Amino acid sequence: MTPDDAAANAENAGVMRVRDLPPGAADALLASHGLQLHRVDDDAPIPGSYWGEPEAGVIANNVYVRSDTPVHSMLHEACHLIVLPPEQRAQVHTDATDSVIEEDATCCLQIILAGELPGVGRARLMADMDAWGYTYRLGSTQAWFEQDAEDARMFLRGLGLPHR
């Protein structure tokens, strides 16, 4: 499945978008981790977007979204920055990492942080991740999170980040 196929499927599946969040909720969550959320106009390109619109973008401590950006994408890109040391964050532009453990930790943390966003929660985020096309060897995001993410949790714990 290509990113375009996943995006088309997810749009039809009703994936939660940034526009669906309560005002200020995402800003406060990201700020609590030293990040700033920037909203760009709906017809504008998203700075630092690896996959292209409507996927979130990252540049240093900044996360860029449009109203049609999926919540899971915003959280995923933010979590890429959260798992990096501050000196590495400052160097990020578009592509945060090529580390497998950092990618796994990012996926784990985005699920955990979804529980802190009103109206989202872990179950909804995992369903959206599956609808979008995330793939795991156990077949679903929930199975991976519950049964196969211990290495990601250990990595997060080592960074002093939420891991349960």
Rank of each mutant, 00 (worst) to 15 (best):
H80M: 10
A10K: 05
E11D: 15
G48I: 03
A131R: 12
R137W: 09
G158D: 14
Q88T: 03
D41S: 14
C79H: 11
R153I: 08
N62R: 10
G24I: 07
D4K: 09
I82L: 08
D42S: 14
G24F: 10
D130I: 13
E53W: 12
I82P: 03
L125S: 01
H163V: 01
R19P: 01
L113G: 03
R164I: 00
Q142H: 03
G115N: 06
A78H: 10
I101Q: 02
Q91M: 12
Q88H: 13
D104L: 15
L37D: 03
L37W: 09
P3K: 03
V18S: 01
L109S: 07
L21Q: 03
V18N: 00
V15M: 11
Q142A: 15
R157N: 07
V15S: 04
A105K: 00
H76S: 09
N61K: 10
V40L: 04
G24N: 06
T97W: 02
S49L: 06
A6Y: 03
D128M: 13
I112Y: 07
D148G: 07
G119K: 00
T2D: 13
V92H: 06
A56P: 00
L81Q: 15
L109F: 06
R124M: 08
A6C: 12
N61P: 07
G48C: 06
D130H: 04
G24V: 07
T141G: 15
P162H: 07
P23Q: 07
T106Y: 08
P22G: 07
R124W: 01
P86K: 01
E116M: 09
E55F: 14
G158Q: 13
E116C: 09
G115T: 04
G14M: 05
A28Y: 02
E102L: 10
E150T: 07
E116I: 00
V63D: 03
R122A: 14
E11M: 09
T97N: 12
M154C: 06
A44F: 14
Q88R: 15
R66L: 05
Q36C: 12
D98S: 13
E11H: 13
F145I: 09
